[in-house]
């Protein structure tokens, strides 16, 4: 079953969790004004459902474009993932990059450096 945590809009990504494949996906453009609030709602969903997020959970991010406010929101979400991984859960972060794109590779590097946690790059 796929749970839609947040449906996509023109300026915000879709956020969903596939319970069968155990993949949490953040996909789409993110140019939202209230980005921190937006990503905070995803963190709230994780907080409410953490007891059911058992086993290996992969968090996939595919954000072709995002503003810097979203970057801060995405980092908050990643920090929540790291927190859970640090406490023993097998949670991992995967960052999708198309065509060795500089913007997306730089972002992955910045996230990894800031988090002190692996951000696995998946080339598409």
């Amino acid at each position: 079953m796929i749970t839609i945590v947040s449906p996509p809009t023109k300026s915000s990504p879709s956020i969903s969790f596939d319970a069968e494949s155990k993949i949490f996906r953040v996909e789409g453009i993110s140019t939202i004004v209230n980005a921190v609030e937006f990503y905070d709602s995803a963190i709230s969903w994780i907080n409410q459902n953490e007891s059911t997020l058992t086993g290996e959970i992969d968090f996939h991010f595919h954000l072709p474009y995002f503003n810097s406010a979203s970057m801060k929101g995405i980092l908050m979400l990643m920090q929540r993932i790291k927190q859970s991984a640090d406490s023993g859960n097998s949670w991992s972060i995967h960052w999708n990059v198309e065509d060795d794109d500089e913007f997306l590779l730089d972002a992955a590097e910045s996230f990894e450096e800031t988090l002190g946690f692996p951000v696995q790059i998946k080339r598409m």
């Binding site: 004004v33 474009y65 995002f66 503003n67 810097s68 406010a69 065509d99 794109d101 500089e102 913007f103």
Partner: peptide, 20 residues
Amino acid sequence: PRKDIRKMCSFAIELLDNGM
């Protein structure tokens, strides 16, 4: 085709975001 097209577009995003 270039590896830095998104990077250039990200500059426009940030400027327009400030304007907005």
